[in-house]
Write a protein that binds this DNA or RNA. Structure first.
Lengths: 174, 174
DNA sequence: GTCTATAATTTGATAGAC
DNA sequence: GTCTATCAAATTATAGAC
């Protein structure tokens, strides 16, 4: 893993626990064994680092998702696959969704960071709309926003109350 | 409004836009026309201010909610009343739910602040469970966590994408 | 209750050597 | 690419006068 990748990984861990202001160039540098001045070589400003972090997080997330049609071809419900990706973040990473946290503090973020967070949700809604449509539902856009809202909210509350059973309860069909 | 109340109000506005680290004693002081040292007279530490802010926010929220039985007696669906309180925060305040934002950064908060945020959600779940039970639903706890998750998530996404129609879509029954 | 003054630390960022 | 050195600003907090 390159130093740049290591910096992004360290930043991701911090942001997913406490938001954009929860990391500093000095901390990241110290963690990977360089000096803060060197971090500026890889990322001119903090906003640049934040934006690239959100961009790569989005790409990795979409990549892990695959495509709705692929899951259908394998006999899997794409909405279940999507839910499982959120569940993994909560259970294994034990951290919030990066863009869920950044989205909540959206109003105070540098413009280029906010732009990447918007991209995350627009892409997610697109994917979910296709998935709900493929499931034969009547209002796929409607269902898409409900799905992602429920998962982001359930994740936040489970972390807050420190009890993953809230996530399970929220995602369990009535 | 006392200086103390004014400080809490100023802090609330900042936190609801960018989280716990989005306010400083100097900024608050400057906004209400005193010096930062005087803020420490009212709140010894930042954590004390944050905890009292979350506590009073929770009390005000529960007070505005009233009781499920009261709404039923007036022929109103308590879940609709609850949803309307979130809608007002989004449309009129144009800000996140204070505890939704603090909950997301829960892992990085001082313990006494996190405690108050937990209280907010425990009290909300209690209220919603009673409401769904009164509505004659089969799994009131189940429905309660789904309701608050959906609303917190929808609020975050609407703010992120800067489009309130996402909130309306998310809260509109299928 | 509010002030001045100040301490101790952290932060984002830059200049310039290697 | 990484370093040393340094800066200007911001932050939380305290001591002590009024």
């Amino acid at each position: 893993m390159s130093k740049k990748e290591a910096l992004l990984k360290a930043a991701e861990n911090k942001v997913r626990l406490g938001g954009y202001s929860n990391f500093s160039f000095r901390e990241l540098a110290s963690e990977i064994g360089i000096k803060s001045a060197s971090v500026h070589y890889h990322f001119p400003t903090k906003a640049d680092l934040g934006a690239e972090l959100a961009h790569q997080y989005t790409n990795a997330f979409l990549n892990a998702l695959g495509s709705p049609s692929e899951h259908l071809a394998n006999g899997k419900n794409p909405i279940e696959v999507y839910t499982q990706l959120f569940r993994s973040a909560l259970l294994f990473d034990k951290k919030m969704c990066l863009c869920g946290l950044l989205g909540a503090e959206s109003d105070s973020l540098p413009e280029k960071v906010r732009f990447e967070v918007k991209r995350f949700f627009n892409q997610n809604l697109e994917w979910l709309t296709e998935a709900h449509l493929a499931n034969g539902e009547q209002q796929p856009k409607h269902a898409a926003i409900q799905t992602v809202s429920l998962l982001e909210g359930a994740m936040m509350i489970s972390k807050t109350l420190d009890d993953n059973s809230y996530f399970e309860l929220a995602t369990q069909p009535a």
